[in-house]
Write a protein that binds this DNA or RNA. Structure first.
Length: 480
DNA sequence: ATGTCC
């Protein structure tokens, strides 16, 4: 089947119309020859399946960290016309507004290294981790409503953060238009004790340092310098978002039938964007997205307290502040140029990061001259990257780029490969102090379970759908 | 990703 793929240039492969039945537009996968070796036929089939959905515009896109997901591939980007098109929970994923937040500091790697053990322990103690972890923050029903309506602003109102954090958060940490009744009691129940918690799987808090700068002007705008300590927080909407997705899948399946949408895979369940079902899902999705922004804002506060305790420093000497916060599992209404017209689209990014260019009206004043910070985590052993969005991304990918390295081994395969080894010790020997809540998590998440992030970044940088600003290397990790 | 199967 994959022999029907057409290599367009060194960074892109086309999935032609006719690759599978029902395709309305071609697929386009950002991938070089090296990463093509790992391309799963099932993920390609999912790119093709997405292109069968009504109202899809341009291409069914996928980023170089593509792998098989639920219905839509992870690494997938698909934009639909608001009038002709659909919204699909499978195009967002279970972890609604899973995303990444990056903090800068005034500290150097040399200043932090002597305290790294204490620091990792303090963060682990302050931010509950693991499946079903419960936080110190308990939300009353009234507060829950404020969380899903206000997002990061809710956390600020609790004294967790400063006003300037909002402009450094995608969508200012709050999507508007949430009807709080669109979220089920069960979803609220699952979210009640999970504010300020990390979760499990690939979620983490990582202490890093800036190991290399590729773009001085952008690095300066982001407050970054070589040798500086940074903190990356990767988590999402926890049980609340998961339950929202679970709740709406059967509703969307019924809606697909009701509105006569032919599904080439039942996991593509969706509804016309202006239908009652779609409006209800979009509202709940936005509420879950707001929960995730409140969560990352709360965790940032807990991390700040951990630095103060472990380093016995003052807030101003430590100087932890927000660089930016991106969502990589979300659907958003955006304006894009299609042909010669500006049109409103519903852009699904599932394991893909928004990458808006310099000058874009949605960027905050402080970053408008350089472009949106794009935050791409790698794995625990290698590196993570900061990039900026570009005009080419606007023209080709609805302002989107990759979201991570992408798995190489299955979870099971990773556990098998780690048998008899001490992954924590291997990482410590490589200069990374790591603590994990789950026994298996460390094995599932070990560096060799992931593709080399450098290959993925090299594709998006050379295809110019985002441009490298800095590389970050880990020195301490808290895993779920 | 996820009270990793109500």
């Amino acid at each position: 089947m994959t022999e029907k793929l057409i290599r367009k240039d060194e960074n892109t492969i086309e999935v032609p119309i006719g690759y599978k039945a029902g395709m309305r537009v071609p697929g386009l996968i950002y991938l070089n020859a090296q990463l093509e070796k790992f391309l799963e036929p099932q993920a390609v089939a999912q790119v093709a399946n997405v292109s069968t959905l009504p109202g899809i515009v341009g291409y069914s896109l996928a980023m170089p960290d593509i792998h098989t997901g639920y219905g839509f591939p992870i690494g997938g980007v698909a934009a639909f016309d608001l009038n002709e098109g659909i919204i699909s929970p499978g195009g967002v994923g279970y972890d609604i507004n899973c995303g990444v937040r990056l903090l800068r500091s005034n500290l150097t790697k040399q200043e932090v290294l002597p305290h790294i053990k204490d620091l990792v322990a303090a963060i682990y103690a302050n931010v509950p981790s693991g499946v079903g972890s419960k936080g110190k923050i308990k939300l009353t029903p009234d507060e829950q409503k404020n969380v899903v309506l206000k997002g990061a602003l809710w956390a600020l109102e609790q004294g967790m953060g400063s006003d300037s954090d909002l402009e450094k958060t995608e969508s200012e940490g709050m999507m508007t238009g949430v009807d709080e009744t669109s979220i089920s009691e069960k979803a609220y129940e699952r979210g009640r004790n999970q504010m300020g918690t990390l979760g499990s799987g690939n979620h983490f808090i990582e202490i890093q340092y800036v190991s290399e700068i590729f773009n001085e002007k952008a690095a300066q705008a982001f407050g970054l310098f070589e040798g500086q300590v940074t903190v990356m927080i990767h988590t999402g909407s926890r049980g609340l978002g998961h339950q929202v997705c679970t709740d709406f899948l059967p509703i969307m399946e019924r809606a697909s039938k009701k509105y006569g949408i032919e599904l080439y895979d039942r996991e593509l369940a969706c509804a016309p964007f202006h239908s009652q079902e779609a409006e209800r899902y979009f509202s709940a999705m936005k509420g879950a997205a707001n929960y995730a922004w409140a969560n990352r804002q709360s965790i940032m506060h807990l991390v700040s307290e951990s630095f103060i305790a472990a380093l016995r420093g003052s807030p101003s000497s430590i100087g932890l502040s927000l660089v930016y916060d991106v969502a990589h599992n979300i659907a958003k209404e955006e304006t894009h140029r299609v042909g010669k017209r500006d049109v409103r689209l519903i852009v699904h990014r599932k394991g893909a990061t928004r990458a808006f260019p310099a000058g874009h009206p949605e960027l905050p004043d402080i970053y408008r001259a350089v472009g949106q910070p794009v935050l791409i985590p790698g794995d625990m052993g290698r590196a993570s990257f900061i990039l900026i969005g570009t005009q080419d991304a606007m023209a080709e990918t609805y302002g989107s780029t990759c979201h991570g390295a992408g798995r190489l081994l299955s979870r099971h395969g990773a556990i098998k490969a780690a048998k008899g080894r001490q992954i924590w010790k291997e990482l410590l020997d490589a200069g990374v102090t790591v603590t994990s809540a789950g026994r298996g998590t460390l094995a599932e998440e070990m560096p060799e379970a992931y593709k080399n992030i450098n290959n993925v970044i090299s594709v998006v940088d050379s295809a110019r759908i985002s441009q490298k600003v800095a590389m970050l290397k880990p020195i301490g990790v808290v895993k779920g």
